[in-house]
Amino acid sequence: MKLLLIEDNPTMQTTLRRSFERRGMQVLGCEDGSRALALWQASLPDAVLLDLSLPGMDGLEVLSQARAAGLETPVIILTARGTVGDRILGLNTGADDYMPKPFDLDELEARLRALVRRSASTESSTRGPAWCGMHVDKDSGAVYFDGRPLELAPREMALLRAMLGKPGHAIAKERLFELVFPGESQVQPEAIEVVAYRLRKKIAHTGAQLVTLRGLGYLLKADS
């Protein structure tokens, strides 16, 4: 498990880091709210432990901006603010759980692992084909790369979904045309080449390549 610990108290951060690393977790630490969001986005942890009283940016604001950016990582708030109103505010902002300080480490670990299991179970039930950091959301049909939706036109999205269904395998142009232009008999078959050209440029940053195989169709492969 990769854990992001956002805590400005050096003693608390050191204690938690050592405890969780002994329990087999990889722990990334951050003590400043203004840097926390960038580290969260870059590291894509399995879970986040978030203190509320942070320098630079309050923990609730960090959480609010993370959720607005589409980061769905499970979050447990750790704070000395133990009133019911504070707990409700934290949960309504997007936290998954809340533990007031002081807390029991064994209970915290149990809650962390339960949240990650639940998140993984939910994710697997809503994910479609996945490859090279990209995955298809079964419910919306959107394609995500490293947790963020790719900005694609509908036909580009349809082509990428088709390619993600069989990565590393050639798919005939005729079959792709049927999937990208369903029932559109007035469209010329060569239109699939235009969609492929546009998609190729938009996924270049993902490490995936859409390769043209003359006489066969297209193939999605990892960029070597």
Rank of each mutant, 00 (worst) to 15 (best):
88 I>S: 02
129 P>C: 14
94 G>L: 06
94 G>A: 09
70 G>S: 04
158 A>R: 13
211 V>T: 09
6 I>D: 07
201 K>G: 07
195 V>N: 06
213 L>Y: 00
220 L>H: 01
20 F>C: 08
114 A>E: 13
157 M>L: 11
69 A>K: 08
190 E>K: 15
190 E>A: 15
145 F>Y: 15
120 A>L: 08
223 D>P: 00
206 T>S: 10
127 R>G: 03
75 V>I: 14
24 G>H: 07
144 Y>L: 13
8 D>T: 12
182 P>K: 00
64 S>E: 13
117 R>H: 12
18 R>S: 03
95 A>M: 01
25 M>P: 06
62 V>C: 08
18 R>N: 04
156 E>V: 02
200 R>H: 11
5 L>A: 11
151 E>Q: 14
217 G>S: 14
151 E>C: 10
24 G>L: 06
42 A>F: 02
174 E>R: 12
65 Q>G: 09
35 R>N: 13
126 T>H: 05
194 V>M: 06
136 V>M: 12
76 I>M: 03
189 P>C: 07
18 R>P: 00
221 K>E: 15
113 R>P: 03
114 A>I: 09
15 T>G: 08
206 T>I: 02
47 A>E: 01
186 Q>H: 13
73 T>L: 04
199 L>V: 02
92 N>K: 12
43 S>Q: 13
220 L>Q: 09
75 V>K: 07
218 Y>T: 10
118 R>G: 13
36 A>Y: 04
108 L>M: 10
51 D>N: 15
145 F>W: 15
98 Y>K: 01
